[in-house]
């Protein structure tokens, strides 16, 4: 187990190296450059060239890349040439915002998705089954920025039930950066509820796709396990249906579901960019979007590296959870 973990962590290095090269090149493939983004269209070619030279973007790409990576290995994620704010400082603010949103979405998606999937599988062929699976199909197909706008229109603009945007007031004392936890720690019920109200719409919007995918995966995994011989054995012992499901079916059915939860957590990172933009959520999504628009190369590179790191870690956790769920899987 320890050796396996060490090997997997070691594999992080080539993965992140690959990601860094790809991002470094791709961001430079987008038309436009940092100087044009700062000076706007009206600037002359000479002015643009001069500013690019000043920022160091006229040097050969390998030189730029090596210089960037040299700073990364020293733990310096660089700074925005635009705002002069360091990426590390910005991440301290923005990462918790995105984490809070993504965690809420994942909790909604996993709990609701697994429950709906179980219900659909147990009532196979019923209206509940068809209804859930139709909704799931709509869920995966719906563009989430559109869904976000519609929900803002319905619940914030028309009904005034929920706030349309932002995270709400920050707590007085920011410890974790997750407002829900900070308010809980301060025993501030009003602040906590207000944070939840702000989380509700973007959390639900971000949850739709993973919820749908998890529901479908849970349903098919459940159906497969329900047809296994050991389920019949369990029934032949006189166990109640609920016990059979909870004790014998769920643990077996959760393996493929966990895989999907992990993959969807990765997909959530891209969903967060759209959702945060629609809801003016001050997180990684809006941060990286602004950086892309400003051709803020360093920021984009570093943020994508952080995303990649998170993605790899989530996958590692998923792989480790297999061994916990299925005694036949051993890592050595």
């Amino acid at each position: 187990m320890g050796r396996y973990l060490a090997r997997r962590l070691l594999l992080l290095v080539p993965t992140l190296l690959g990601v860094s090269v790809i991002v470094f090149l791709f961001i430079r493939l987008i038309p436009g450059d940092p100087a044009t983004a700062i000076l706007r269209e009206s600037a002359t070619a000479a002015q643009v060239a001069e500013l690019n030279a000043k920022l160091g973007f006229d040097r050969p790409l390998p030189v730029q890349y090596l210089e960037y990576m040299g700073r990364i290995v020293r733990g310096d994620l660089g700074e925005s040439f635009h705002t002069r704010l360091t990426v590390v400082d910005q991440l301290k603010q923005k990462l918790p915002a995105t984490m809070e949103l993504a965690l809420s979405a994942m909790i909604i998606a996993t709990v609701a998705g697994v429950l709906l999937g179980i219900l659909a599988a147990m009532r196979r062929g019923s209206i509940l089954d068809y209804g859930t699976m139709t909704l799931a199909l709509v869920g995966v197909s719906m563009p989430i920025f559109w869904l976000g706008l519609m929900l803002i229109y319905a619940f914030a603009v028309n009904l005034h039930w929920l706030p349309p945007s932002t995270r709400g007031e920050p707590p007085e004392l920011v410890r974790t950066g997750l407002y829900t936890l900070d308010y809980l720690a301060a025993l501030d019920a009003n602040g906590f509820l207000d944070t939840l109200r702000h989380l509700a719409l973007p959390g639900f919007v971000l949850a739709t796709v993973p919820l749908a995918v998890i529901a479908r995966q849970t349903r098919s995994a459940m159906l497969e396990v329900l047809g296994q011989d050991f389920v019949r054995t369990a029934r032949s012992k006189g166990l109640r249906q609920q016990t059979v499901i909870a004790r014998h079916v769920l643990k077996n059915a959760m393996l493929p579901v966990i895989t999907v939860v992990g993959l969807q957590t990765g997909a959530l990172l891209s969903g967060a960019v759209l959702t945060e933009t629609v809801f003016s959520w001050p997180g990684m999504g809006t941060y990286v979007l602004e950086a892309i628009l400003a051709r803020d190369y360093t920021v984009v590179q570093s943020v994508v590296l952080v995303f990649a790191f998170i993605f790899v870690m989530v996958n590692l956790i998923v792989d480790l959870s297999y061994a916990w769920l299925d005694p036949r899987i051993k890592y050595a």
């Binding site: 050991f230 054995t233 032949s236 014998h248």
Partner: peptide
């Protein structure tokens, strides 16, 4: 009655036991 007064032994012991319990 199941598993109590009447018990059953199935054909394939490879698949009739739950692999994760």
């Amino acid at each position: 009655i199941r598993g109590n007064a009447i018990a059953m032994i199935f054909q394939d012991p490879m698949t009739s036991l739950n692999p994760v319990l």
